[in-house]
Design a protein around this nucleic acid. Structure first.
Length: 209
DNA sequence: GCAAAGATTTGCT
DNA sequence: GCAAATCTTTGCC
């Protein structure tokens, strides 16, 4: 599935589960994916792959189903899933999930990684729906950093993995919108409708439609 | 070898 | 609504 066209994989990924096994300090965490973005090929001028293979993006050129995690703005990690056949660089950025299990561990992880210029509980409680409502927040809630780059997300034995939408669950509606945060890219790339959302979800980041 | 910008989030104005 | 926080990667000298 992830080895095929990225736009098909994007739609299939909505409704699927992001799972991280319990750790020494956290319970099992599960989220329902409700927002993803596609980055496809070296021709996509918004993609990290646009300058060809580098030390950072090389896994995008590798096997599908593998995690690509990078640091943005010096402080937030972003989780991607590599798609398309080997040598064809493409990936899906997981931008938001609805928490299903392990909410208290997600909340604890969020508070732990929050930057603290003014130490102490200066902000209000985080609502469940906002625990992972953004690419940097997904990584924070699941405690994902660059060491997960290369992890096979389709391997049931991986500590961090993807699991299909349960067969009994109705496939979600899907809406396509332009991608977020890539205004630097020239057209037509900046306007390609390659952000896919489950409309109506309370956990979306940015525009709801 | 150095400068600039980035697939973001938060808190204050 | 806007700017700061923060540091890695990339582009150019």
């Amino acid at each position: 599935m992830l080895a095929g066209p990225t736009l098909d994989a994007a739609r299939a990924l909505l409704g699927a589960r992001l799972v991280r096994d319990a750790t020494r300090t956290a319970e099992r965490r599960v989220g329902r994916i409700v927002e993803v973005e596609a980055y496809i090929g070296v021709e996509d001028q918004a993609s990290h792959a646009r300058m060809g293979p580098t030390a950072r993006n090389r896994v995008m050129f590798g096997r599908p189903g593998v995690a690509y995690v990078y640091l943005v703005y010096g402080m937030y990690h972003c989780l991607n899933v590599v798609t398309e056949p080997e040598a064809r660089p493409a990936a899906l950025l997981i931008r938001a999930v609805e928490p299903l299990e392990g909410r208290s561990s997600m909340r604890a992880a969020r508070l732990a990684t929050r930057r603290s210029r003014t130490p102490g509980p200066t902000s209000r409680a985080i609502p469940d729906s906002r625990l992972a409502s953004g690419p940097g927040l997904v990584a924070a809630a699941f405690e994902i950093d660059r060491t997960f780059t290369g992890t096979d997300l389709c391997d049931r034995a991986s500590e961090l993995r993807l699991e299909p939408r349960p067969a009994a669950e109705t496939p979600p509606d899907v809406t396509a919108t332009p991608r977020v945060g890539i205004a630097y890219a020239p057209e037509p790339w900046a306007s390609m409708p390659w952000r896919f959302i489950v409309p109506g979800s309370a956990s979306l980041s940015g525009p709801r439609a």
